[in-house]
């Protein structure tokens, strides 16, 4: 199953990365490579979306869903953090 592979490869990378701690070259290459991999994958996502008439037709509806989910996540985060601060954060110790 692809989800297991996704998490598995991340963990393998995490462990492998620890051996490269003293090689700054590896880190620099990795972040450059990561940037291009993200560009490439979003390009692929664009291609895949462009070839999927269902998605293209539904874009307004998907946009509305995205908007609502985003509002929910933002309000949830702001409220829960505010509550946690009221409960635990006295005298501004955090800042």
């Amino acid at each position: 199953m692809s989800v297991v592979v996704v998490i598995g490869l991340f963990l393998v990378g995490l462990i492998a990365g620890r051996f490269f701690k003293s090689y700054s070259v590896v880190r620099k290459r990795a972040s450059l490579f990561m940037m291009w991999a993200v560009y490439l994958l979003l390009f692929f996502l664009g291609i895949s979306v462009g070839n999927n008439p269902d998605v293209i037709e539904n874009i307004p509806q998907l946009g509305l869903q995205a908007f609502l989910l985003s509002v929910g996540a933002v309000i949830g985060s702001v409220v829960v953090v505010a509550l946690l601060m009221l409960l635990f954060h006295k005298n501004n110790r955090l800042s």
Binding site: F10, L11, G13, I15, V26, R27, A37, F44
Partner: peptide
């Protein structure tokens, strides 16, 4: 676009590669 670019498994392998690289870059960060 040429046919081969529409292949779904292409982006799956790219995703696998990305996850490996994300892991390496996090793991190697002092």
């Amino acid at each position: 676009l040429p046919r081969w670019m529409l292949n779904e498994s292409l982006s799956t392998y790219a995703l696998y590669l990305l996850m490996l690289i994300v892991g390496i870059s996090v793991g190697s960060d002092k």
